[in-house]
Amino acid sequence: MDLSCVHAKSNGFLLRNSFSEIPICWNSRNHTFALEIRRTRKGSLPGYCRYRSVLIRAMGKKNPGNSNSNSSSSGPGNGDHSKAGGDSLKGNNPPPGGNKPGDTSPQKSQCKPLDWREFRALLYIQEQAENEDSVHNQDRTSPGSKSLPLKWAHPISAPENGCLLVATEKLDGVRTFERTVVLLLRSGTRNPQEGPFGVVINRPLHKKMKHMNPTNIELATTFADCSLHFGGPLDASMFLLRAGETTGLPGFEEVIPGVYFGSRNSLDKGSGLVKKGTLRPQDFRFFMGYAGWQLDQLREEIESDYWYVAACSANLISGASQSSSSDGLWEEILQLMGGHYSELSRKPKQDI
């Protein structure tokens, strides 16, 4: 079954730590069911029990195209084909009266289901809201009442593909990385011989590819008006492409849904997609250089508070080239992360 609505109720512990960082999937013949996840606490506090529980409820509706089947008559090969309807994972209610059969007007269209990163972000936002309400001795926000904002960012405990490394104040004065935001293209955890690497996404060079007098024919023609950025101190060039709703682009590696990266070897494929009309030249952003670490090196830098690790919405990454200020995206990410991160975004640079 497709997931149409998820309600998560926490009782005062960090909900995000209760879930693995992979898609959460359910398959049941029932229209609704409940899953209880328990997380054991390492220590106990006065007045608190040893563990708390989180209750996840998912609800689905039968696919109209499969109305003749029911849960009691499903046999081998007749799996559950229920389709999400009504409420979406974003917690939005359907319009009054609901959609009429055959009504496909844009204002009544269904919301796109959340991917696992968005689902995790929604849990984090709901948890923060509950904690804030608890501090102010108010009634706690009911689960699902907080929807996922258009732009979001939140801290995570460890690097992952597609996460951000946000420079801390300890890198003030280090010209290469001062107030930078690095998109980690690979976290380096899958292949021990390959360390983490990524590109700085908030250092526009205010130049276009044609200003560099490229010798590559595709760079000189198809991608001549694409923006150019400083990507890092290591010598190699890469590009990001914003795919939007287009999925499954062969020859490119997906970083997060809708954002891919490629290298010089995949320029011809990128040009081909532009000529076919699948993508536009402005969907590409090119980087001179990249940032790379050994796995232990990055871990040590994070533990030494040189980097904050965060997850964010795709539009913050794809829209980074629109920032006129190098510090603009850095400040925006920290403010969206909230709490003490937001306070740090307003601090002046350290004199070193």
Rank of each mutant, 00 (worst) to 15 (best):
G173S: 13
V166H: 11
C163A: 05
L148N: 08
V174C: 06
R179P: 04
Q193P: 09
S142E: 15
T180A: 13
G251F: 05
F197S: 14
L165F: 00
T141L: 03
R179K: 11
P155L: 06
R242T: 12
H229W: 08
E169Q: 14
G231M: 10
F252R: 12
E245I: 13
I256E: 02
R264Y: 12
P149Q: 08
N191E: 06
V182F: 00
G231E: 12
V255E: 05
P149S: 10
F177A: 14
D225S: 08
G144F: 12
N161W: 01
T215E: 14
R203V: 10
N137W: 09
P192W: 09
K146S: 15
A158S: 13
P257H: 03
K170M: 09
E178P: 03
A158D: 09
T176W: 01
S157K: 12
D172F: 00
G144T: 09
G258L: 05
T141A: 04
V181G: 05
P143K: 10
F197Q: 11
L164K: 10
G162S: 06
G173C: 13
I217L: 13
A243L: 06
S157F: 06
D225V: 00
K207G: 09
T168M: 05
K170C: 07
P143S: 12
G173F: 03
K170V: 02
F223E: 00
V255M: 08
R175P: 00
E253G: 00
L150G: 05
P192M: 04
S157P: 00
G244N: 15
G195Q: 09
T215G: 13
E245H: 13
N202K: 01
S237A: 13
L240E: 11
T221H: 01
T247S: 14
P257A: 02
K146M: 15
N137Q: 13
K151L: 02
F223R: 05
G244P: 11
S145D: 15
T168G: 02
P149I: 07
A224Y: 03
E169Y: 06
A220V: 03
G162V: 03
I217W: 09
L240I: 15
T180K: 02
R264P: 01
D172Q: 10
F230M: 08
T141P: 04
V135F: 06
A153M: 02
F261P: 00
P214A: 03
G188P: 09
W152G: 07
S263R: 10
D172G: 07
P159E: 03
L150W: 03
S227I: 04
E253V: 04
K208W: 10
H154K: 00
Y260I: 01
E218W: 03
S147W: 11
L249V: 02
L150E: 10
T141V: 13
F223C: 03
L148H: 09
H154Q: 08
A236G: 04
